[in-house]
Amino acid sequence: MKKIFVDYKKCVACKGCEIACAIQQHPSHNLYALVGDKKTQVNVRVLGVEHEAFPVSCRHCEPAMCLDACPSGAISRDPQTSAVVLNPDICKACAMCAMVCPFDAVSFKQTHRAQYGRTVAYKCDLCHERLQEGLNPACVDACHSNALVFKESDELSNQRAVQNLKVYLLGDEGEPPLFSLYRELRRKEFARRRSDKS
């Protein structure tokens, strides 16, 4: 299946993916409708780890621990795209999935899709509806710097993936010198900020 990979050295932390995801998931599909809407669902999170930043989201593992853990039948695999999808209509937000997801990819709140006025789990659905229209996931299309790559994932990677996130991190070499300098300065800034030296 095709999966989203992260070339973390190319991530500029602009969070364009977060916004694109929110728009895609919002019933209005409109940026301005998101503002102040607490039910807005964002399935990708740009995580800052010291000087590095990269988007994290559901990895659509095979097998998927969340899917196996779900006692309400809410998580299933989309037959066409192999995406791990969550049906909020029958999700009870019991958190069994979140308890075992190694990627922290499941969150809870009252989204626009929540029934009965209660919290539900929500997670990346790989934009499987967009995929069926021949499009890329919204976050991938939104990424200016090609840090998000949608490409075929081989069997071997799938097996290792659950054990180790590194499988999803590309690290292509070669970048303009000033960008290298920028990254290096950021690295130094964070290293100094963390250091206990006084």
Binding site: L47, G48, V49, E50, E52, V56, P102, D104, N164, L165, K166, R194, D196
Partner: peptide, 19 residues
Amino acid sequence: RRGVSHYRNLMQLQTPVTV
């Protein structure tokens, strides 16, 4: 609180120190 420890570990970063 942010869910970074897994990645910090991968990046072999040291624990931030606040005594």
